[in-house]
Amino acid sequence: MDAILLQVLNGLDKGGAYALIALGLTLIFGTLGVVNFAHGALFMLGAFCAVTIREVLTLSVKVKDESVTFFEAFKEVPYLELWLGETGKTIIDWSVPISILFAIPFMLMVGLVMERGLIRHFYRRPHADQILVTFGLAIVIQEIVKAYYGANPIPQPSPELLSGTANVGAFFGLGDNLVYPLWRLVYLGFALVIIAIVFAFLQFTTFGMVVRAGMADRETVQLLGINITKRFSIVFGLAAVVAGLAGLMYTPVLPPDYHMGMDFLVLSFVVVVVGGMGSLPGAVLAGFLLGILQSFASMNEVKQIIPGLDQIIIYLVAMIVLLVRPRGLMGRKGVMED
């Protein structure tokens, strides 16, 4: 029972990341009809917002290590600590959540520039062209990040207050020995909140209503005199923000490196296909579902029966779902069907 609960939590946690990326992918696909292979790069850029802000917050006085003479070796004391003492330490400690403030406008700008500067030129082009150009863009972004930050992962600690473990066993009445990393629970909560905000935004605001109408019938909305293109550009920016925040908050779980977006991208596309192209609830549902299945497939008991299942489970499920429900779990008729 303990093991099952932990694997469910693992799956939900991982599924949260999948769902957030898939949500953005679906939003872009549903509104602009673009298959955005650069979406993983946006996830990675969000993570590097956290890295950048931490670098800024930890700008330091360098105290030279005199025992080393062949090169510059030094111990760093951040200015914030020198100037503000404990307050400075606390600000650095909370660098990951603080970087959200920077990441939102930054990712919005990246999304808008990407859409206006490049992707809009490919709206009327075949999907294959869109995939090629966005995949190329992803590689360019990756290489820029690598050139500046290197290929090694860069650790981003979570705030001390949230870095221990939570006694989930006591919460579920399963004894005191069942613990789970606190930050992963925070991430799960964060993912659910972001998903709720996106849905609420689309459901309860005029902007959201227009976007949904545009997703359903773009031409009619345009005939009503609404500038749907402008709104869709903003949607692209919002999808970039969602992907960026998903990456940023994931940094304490997975030390970011330039390639992390690509690792998530392929799985997220499978999530979108399983959920149903263009279906936002489908993307979220499939994200969590596949996350949980992947966790269970990695259990020793399962691997003893079917070795290597953890490697193929997602694709296996995708095959079965597409055989039984060719449009995915919640796919709509007419999406990507000529």
Partner: peptide
């Protein structure tokens, strides 16, 4: 006690770590 093989580049190892707890 156990030798669990993990795929190269797994990224998230949580599903391999949780069984260690018990």
């Amino acid at each position: 006690v156990a030798d669990v093989r993990t795929p190269v580049g797994a990224g998230d190892f949580s599903q391999y770590i949780t069984p260690i707890l018990n």
